[in-house]
């Protein structure tokens, strides 16, 4: 084959410029959803075409890309996106959070703290936090414009009325820079505190909905709550069975058909890093390694 028929990182320069303008506007108005002319990408919408377009627009030849899906670098989705950019942009890829300069994610924020030289790109399916209670787009836009966010608390009220506590576990609404209410969908609320005052810029791309929004570095991000039902980042009350971590977000894994379960870090890079550094959980690392790489 001759020269590839596509531009660096697949999108043409004009499209990338258009997306960058949307990103710049999003950074200038933290939490505000900026419309953009979302392009067809050579993958289905459910695969995070919004995030892919943002990544394509910001990627440079020296970047090192990490892609995570449910905290793991090894799902089909994560592997495909990583391969896509390795091929179309020729960039280096990694699974190590520390080595990455651009991290595209679907559900999780890495456990390892991010730094100023990194960018976190989120793939977002539903950008509008008010959608659930107010389906009319004209009305939700007006609510954002006028900062009328009572409806957001109606949703939290309903949670408490029904379940006795705020049961929303994913896509938990936040207020950015004391102005716009934003949906960090579909990250677990455990990760919400990591968005606050984060040194790395956070960019959100929704492909089907054609929206880009952002949290600039070191921006205040507050999870909505009630005085008498304060926000609580949820995690299973257990150490990771593999690395013993007590501060990481855990996945529950069913280990046999008798209902035995174990809890392991959802962030596989973090877990493996801890194991390599000599940390142990209640189960030895060996069977897991076999499973993960078998």
């Amino acid at each position: 084959m001759n020269a590839p028929a596509y531009n660096f990182a697949y999108l043409d320069e004009q499209t990338k410029r258009m997306i960058r303008r949307a990103i710049l506007k999003a950074i200038a108005i933290p939490g505000y959803q900026v419309p953009f002319a979302s392009r067809e990408m050579p993958m289905p919408y459910g695969w995070g075409t919004g995030g892919v377009q943002v990544t394509a627009a910001i990627l440079g030849p020296t970047d090192v890309l990490k892609v995570i899906d449910q905290g793991s670098d090894d799902t089909t989705n994560a592997i495909s996106i990583r391969k896509f950019f390795a091929k179309t942009a020729g960039v280096a890829t990694t699974t190590a959070t520390d080595d990455a300069t651009v991290i595209q994610t679907r559900h999780r924020i890495p456990e390892t703290a991010l730094n100023e030289s990194q960018v976190l790109v989120y793939q977002v399916p539903i950008p509008e936090p008010l959608r659930f209670l107010e389906p009319r787009e004209t009305e939700t836009r007006r609510m954002h414009a006028l900062a009328e966010y009572g409806l957001m608390h109606v949703k939290l009220y309903e949670d408490i009325a029904r379940f006795g506590h705020i049961a929303t576990a994913y896509a938990y609404p936040v207020k950015v820079n004391a102005r716009y209410v934003m949906d960090p969908s579909p990250t677990p609320k455990f990760d919400n505190p990591k968005m606050d005052n984060c040194p790395a810029p956070q960019l959100f791309g929704a492909g089907r909905e054609k929206r880009i929004y952002a949290i600039p570095p070191y921006t205040k991000v507050v999870s909505l709550d009630f005085e008498d039902h304060p926000f609580e980042p949820y995690r299973f009350n257990a150490p990771c069975a593999l690395c013993g971590a007590e501060d990481s977000y855990l996945d529950e894994i069913v280990t046999d058909d008798k209902g035995s379960r174990m809890f392991v870090c959802s962030d596989t890079d973090y877990c493996e890093g801890r194991q390599a550094a000599g940390h142990h959980g209640s189960l030895s690392a060996a069977p897991y390694k076999e499973k993960a790489h078998g």
Binding site: L133, E148, G150, L151, H153, V154, Y157, E158, I160, A161, R162, F226, E227, D228, H229
Partner: peptide, 25 residues
């Protein structure tokens, strides 16, 4: 709001003007 509980229907205006205590609402 037909799909939202009666309590939240009544409480909505209070939340809209900044009430932030579930029990009081």
């Amino acid at each position: 709001r037909m799909a939202v509980s009666a309590g939240a229907n009544v409480g909505e205006r209070l939340m809209a003007v900044g009430w932030n205590h579930y029990g009081r609402i």
